[in-house]
């Protein structure tokens, strides 16, 4: 009881979830399927007595890489339509035939060798992370150094690729104020809602020096929803005038 049953339960789940790569129309569904695949593989790693890799799979793959792809998907491609027109004739059938051939080739080739069916034995004594750390910083330390280099160059290249240079010089606040005066616009900043009014709620317009409400001080959204007040009942002198 245990490992065999887990394998036969998890592997159909993983294969079905990975089939979203081929059949799901929306990229978000593909991503959701891939997250299921990643978590299923983490389960396999733990049963294969590699608990450290299982945790890394959940944290790095599911938690970081998939979420990063999700961010970019939401940024650029969530409503992109994918054209189903084939640019190369028969490409779909050629690809499927090649994939089937690949499965048959690899499985029949690997079936000829005899793999020992056994657990990991005493290899994990002292804890799996310690054992892996000994391997990483002992036998494979040069690969670790090179991978550090790879990671740094990847980070720098991503920053350089997505960097946008500023178009034109940065204008200072004094220059912008001067432009406003020259164009005979309002030379000062617009007041926040509620300035000099009785209340400072977001839907109460500010009051100008003459005691009139300033409509521009209220958000356009509130106006579109008709949730703004015209200001008459909140005006500082409004109530007194009404009393007279």
């Amino acid at each position: 009881m245990g490992e065999q049953e887990l394998f036969w339960v998890m592997s159909p789940v993983i294969v079905l979830a990975s089939l979203t790569l081929l059949f799901a129309r929306k990229a978000v569904y593909v991503l959701a399927g891939m997250i299921v695949v990643m978590i299923g593989l983490a389960v396999f790693y733990v049963t294969l007595e590699a608990p450290f890799l299982g945790m890394i799979q959940v944290i790095v793959y599911t938690g970081a890489i998939m979420m990063l792809i999700l961010f970019v998907l939401m940024l650029v491609g969530v409503d992109q339509k994918e054209s189903l027109r084939e640019t190369i004739r028969g490409q779909r059938w050629i690809a499927l035939a090649a994939a089937t051939g690949l499965v048959v080739l690899i499985v029949t080739t690997v079936y000829r060798i005899e793999l020992p069916i056994r657990d990991i034995g005493g290899m994990n004594d002292g804890g799996n992370p310690q054992v892996i750390a000994n391997a990483l910083f002992g036998e494979w330390v040069l690969v670790m150094e090179i991978l550090g280099l790879v990671l740094i160059s990847a980070a720098v290249s991503a920053i350089v690729l997505t960097h946008l240079p500023r178009s034109g010089d940065r204008r200072s606040q004094a220059e912008r104020a001067e432009e406003r005066v020259r164009a005979r616009l309002n030379p000062v900043n617009k007041p926040m809602p509620g300035v000099y009014a009785r209340r400072n709620a977001l839907d109460v317009p500010a009051i100008d020096p003459e005691g009139k409400p300033v409509p521009a001080s209220i958000s356009r959204v509130l106006k579109a929803r008709k949730q703004d007040k015209d200001g008459s009942e909140w005006r500082a002198i409004g109530k007194d005038e009404a009393a007279e």
């Binding site: 790569l21 994918e82 490409q91 690809a95 090649a98 994939a99």
Partner: peptide, 14 residues
């Protein structure tokens, strides 16, 4: 193979 077919067939870069 599923991954390879996806790379060959899907148009969406992501």
């Amino acid at each position: 193979s599923i991954g390879a077919v996806a790379v060959l067939l899907r148009r969406n870069a992501i």
